[in-house]
């Protein structure tokens, strides 16, 4: 646990010092809202359209985070340093996923209010706790898959291309679950409740892929 705390602190401190990912993600997210506004030619959205836009925006902005996640370790020998330390390698995966989760929270802290301001017809207030729960599950799913795929992609020659290409199909169940769950929450004229089935699917997917990633992560670090 101390290892995890140390690794996570290192990730977050590095991000705070260099500001390589989060500002770019936030700016990208807000820009995508503007793009959607013009692309759809709509002043406001609600319901399934709003859910789709929000999920897709978080996904695409998160891709920037995925692409940057391991670059510093690969280029500046962070992997070697970590491998020299007598700790379980799984912690690196958990720390990377945790760091990306934090980046996504930072992104959403700006992007979701911006979304409410720019595009969303019903206010966010009508189902805020449920919204936060769904976003947390979405973030967890994204962080887990991105931490695994990012570790694969960073060692390839076309890393910025392969990362999103591999991650997106794996993320589609997360997208389906999150979009279906968000749709009633963003409906105009009173939010509907959360669908327990989708909540279970999303939670289960996060759990299964989390365990799976932990199981297969080790071989990615050997060399």
């Amino acid at each position: 646990m101390r290892v995890l705390a140390a690794l996570l602190r290192k990730e977050l401190r590095l991000e705070l010092r260099t500001l390589e990912s989060v500002p770019g993600m936030i700016l990208f997210g807000v820009t995508i809202f503007v793009v959607f506004h013009f692309g759809l030619d709509r002043a406001s959205v609600e319901g399934d359209l709003a859910a789709g836009i929000l999920v897709v925006t978080i996904l695409f902005a998160g891709m920037l985070g995925l692409n940057r996640l391991y670059v510093a370790d690969e280029e500046q020998g962070g992997f070697d340093g970590f491998l020299l330390a007598p700790v379980d390698r799984t912690w690196l995966f958990v720390a990377k996923a945790g760091a990306l989760f934090a980046y996504l929270v930072a992104l959403e802290l700006v992007a979701v209010p911006a979304f409410a301001l720019l595009l969303l017809e019903p206010g966010l207030g009508q189902a805020l706790p449920e919204l936060l729960l769904v976003l947390a599950l979405l973030n967890a799913g994204f962080a887990i898959i991105a931490a695994l795929v990012g570790a694969i992609a960073v060692r390839t020659r076309a890393r910025d291309l392969l990362g999103p290409l591999i991650a997106l199909p794996l993320l589609i169940p997360v997208v389906i679950g999150a979009a279906r769950l968000l749709e009633p929450l963003l409906r105009e004229g009173g939010a509907g409740g959360l669908d327990a089935t989708w909540l279970a699917i999303l939670g289960l997917y996060d759990l299964v892929f989390g365990l799976l990633s932990i199981a297969v992560f080790d071989p990615l670090l050997e060399d």
Binding site: L148, I152, A153, R155, T156, R157, A158, R159, L162, L165, I166, P169, L170, L212, S213, A215, V216, F217, P219, L220, E222, D223
Partner: peptide, 26 residues
């Protein structure tokens, strides 16, 4: 469909095999 491009993008054969296996299991 990304499996083959991923293999192709890793030059070291040993690492290629290892990464491909992680991909295949996931």
């Amino acid at each position: 469909a990304t499996y083959t491009p991923m293999r192709f993008a890793i030059e070291d054969p040993e690492r290629q095999a290892r990464y491909a296996s992680v991909f295949a299991i996931a």
